[in-house]
Write a protein that binds this DNA or RNA. Structure first.
Lengths: 211, 211
DNA sequence: TGCTGTACTTACCGATCGGTAAGTTAAACT
DNA sequence: AGTTTAACTTACCGATCGGTAAGTACAGCA
């Protein structure tokens, strides 16, 4: 089991970074979980930053593979959009730690702006926006309308995914389970309704804000 | 200016905690911003945790006041729901640091579960869910349907609010400005479409997951 | 048998952390 | 004038941080 240790380090690091954030985690703490010394970790990853980078890269890669798998779905079709977003929901459900860590990155990356993997969402986002923009009603309005709508969908998904532990604690376990059970169907309905409603007409006031 | 210093500490602390998180901030760093020593801070707030608690309480209080101000809107009405959520969008726009810090709390509070102010959203959430549940189509389905829908709305708002710096960096400033300009109208349209669509019928498969 | 590289270990380092102790300064009150 | 109190300061503490240095144990290979 040569690089098995390496992968176990990455798994533990993902867990801890997701739960406590970069600054809340010590490399000694990560090593302790595996019963190894801090220097064992530094032997495989030359610094805490490098370790963190590899964790993010791993998420990014897994994410890319998953969206490429669903990228073959038909374009110019509401079903396809709903299917892509449904896949994203399942993704978040199956990898909650990845979702949590990426939400932390979203909060931190104004400082860590140099890191490229932050735009992990960019490809997925563009693909979705293109698909929405290609829909009959949406083409007439600017692309930013489609982008706003797509980002609202993503927000609905991501926020719920990240909130799961809080909602469990806030409500009863049973009520949360009920919410979770109907979430997907409710979301799909919302997406379809939103897409059918088409782009909103922007009132003039908003434009004048930049005066 | 007796307790002026105190308030300035709180303001700087909010900024730093929102930007770097609890563990990423040092009390000496906060004090430095005001040109004071670390012990000046500890004179006003007996510990870092207490300072953090007061910052959160301040947000919670401000948030409560703002939602109480809009709580007088009519019930059993789609316009009222849209108005409450529109107010929330404005709220986030005007206090981005508060929004960011609360998102961090959402990520951290599985560890800090003892803190009560985490449920700052609870009142607002319940009020919204009640209003949705009172709508003609929604009453027939369980309350959790309304809760899921409301949480999707909140997610769309919150996620966008928190993503602002990232979106600015990811797209051109102009494209982001366009998105931002049409966001409110797009969101209102989504909310109205979602409410009009009513609760989704849950397929049996989801229920069987608990087997 | 001797050499080399991998996978670790213990020992240690300077920096920084939150927090304590003990002043200092000046305004406010009696 | 004397005392108290609020608002700070400098000096210091032990703990923990990320990271370096130097060694050990062992497997594979010539």
């Amino acid at each position: 089991m040569a690089n098995n240790t390496r992968e176990r380090f990455l798994a533990v690091a993902l867990d801890q970074f997701a739960e406590r954030g970069f600054d809340g985690v010590s490399i000694a703490g990560i090593a302790d979980v595996l019963g190894l010394s801090k220097q064992a970790l530094l032997h495989h990853f030359e610094s805490k930053e490098k370790l963190y980078g590899e964790v993010l890269d791993g998420i990014s890669r897994a994410f890319q593979e998953r969206i490429e798998a669903t990228d073959a779905t038909p374009k110019n079709d509401r079903d396809a959009i709903a299917a892509l977003l449904a896949a994203l929901v399942q993704d978040h459900r199956q990898h909650p730690q990845q979702t949590r860590l990426l939400m932390r990155e979203l909060l931190d990356n104004s400082r860590r702006a140099e890191r490229a993997s932050h735009w992990y969402l960019r490809g997925f986002l563009d693909a979705l926006v293109d698909r929405v923009h290609a829909l009959p009603q949406w083409g007439s309005a600017g692309r930013h309308h489609a982008a706003a709508a797509v980002y609202q969908f993503l927000g609905a998904i991501n926020y719920f995914a990240v909130s799961s532990p809080t909602l469990k604690a806030m409500f009863s376990d049973e009520f949360y389970a009920d919410m979770d059970d109907c979430f997907d169907a409710q979301l799909e309905q919302l997406i379809r309704a939103g897409l059918a409603a088409g782009p909103a007409s922007v009132r003039l006031e908003a434009r004048q804000r930049n005066a």
